[in-house]
């Protein structure tokens, strides 16, 4: 019996995944907060606890994500783009385009049969199309970020946003509210604006009919639906989209 750990220290959340024989056995998600080292340990311990394991049962650990180097107990560091690609290739072997919507970054990645990167693109220094957009929207409307998806699906008349910038969208949302727009229409409008921004990334990197949406954004059903509308197809969504890179890291660890 050998267990392998993947740890993804993201800008918003830290994710740990434990695999045995390339199969996911346990995972944990904790907020990254201001101490990435602490978050990495916490997520690891939580995931281990679910299997009644201790650190010594882990044969190899690969860290990934924005704060990967802070997980200093890892044996190796691999970029989150490679880890997303690997994670998705294990989950959905036919998927060739991965759209990862994280707290700060959105990435579009094209992959080959073996889950290797063919090409990738990230949003530049701009939160448009990233999870930040959703956080801002939830804050303005005083709703939980988890509720945005459901709310969006209730919309009958999505608000047209004229900007893809998260900061300007905030003031635009406020103007629309002052004009009497419904919260669900605001959310649906934000989802649409994000989807079109994501669409430009996907167009640049190369669109394939089989694509997956990962990261925290993959949990927002309204956003996924808006992306599906833009791409005129249906996304593959992992059971837990947020741990895709951690899973990929654990798979990499298994082959070390």
């Amino acid at each position: 019996m050998a267990f392998f750990l993947g740890i993804d220290v993201g800008s918003g959340w830290t994710k740990a995944a434990i695999c045995e024989d390339n199969e996911l056995k346990s995972y944990a998600i904790v907020p990254s907060g201001g101490d990435y080292k602490k978050a990495a340990k916490e997520a690891t311990n939580l995931a281990l606890k679910k299997l009644n394991l201790s650190v010594k049962d882990i044969k190899c650990t690969v860290a990934t994500g924005y704060g990967a180097t802070m997980a200093d107990f890892a044996n190796d560091v691999i970029s989150d783009i490679s880890c997303h690609a690997k994670g998705i290739s294990v989950l959905f072997s036919n998927v060739r385009t991965v759209i990862d919507i994280g707290a700060q970054f959105t990435r579009a990645i094209t992959i080959d049969n073996d889950g290797r990167i063919i090409n990738f693109i990230m949003n530049e220094k701009c939160a448009g199309g990233s999870g930040k957009f959703l956080q801002v929207t939830a804050r303005i409307l005083h709703v939980n970020i988890e509720e945005l998806g459901r709310l969006s699906l209730e919309s009958k008349k999505p608000v047209e946003f004229t900007t893809a910038c998260a900061v300007f969208a905030e003031s635009e949302a406020i103007s629309r509210i002052s004009e009497g727009a419904r919260p669900e229409d605001i959310v649906a409008g934000i989802h649409k604006a994000m989807a079109s921004k994501i669409m430009t990334l996907v167009t640049r990197v190369g669109m394939n009919p089989d694509y997956a949406v990962t990261g925290g954004g993959g949990k927002d059903i309204g956003l996924v639906k808006a992306i599906d509308n833009e791409l005129r197809s249906k996304a593959y969504i992992p059971y837990e989209p947020q741990i895709t890179a951690a899973l990929g890291a654990a798979i990499f660890a298994s082959s070390k």
């Binding site: 924005y66 691999i78 970029s79 783009i81 970054f105 290797r116 090409n119 990230m122 220094k125």
Partner: peptide, 21 residues
Amino acid sequence: DEYSISSLARMKTRIEAFLEM
């Protein structure tokens, strides 16, 4: 990027992924 180190971590991710690619 800017002429500044403010987003170095972001650059690092891309460069690492590129080298892996």
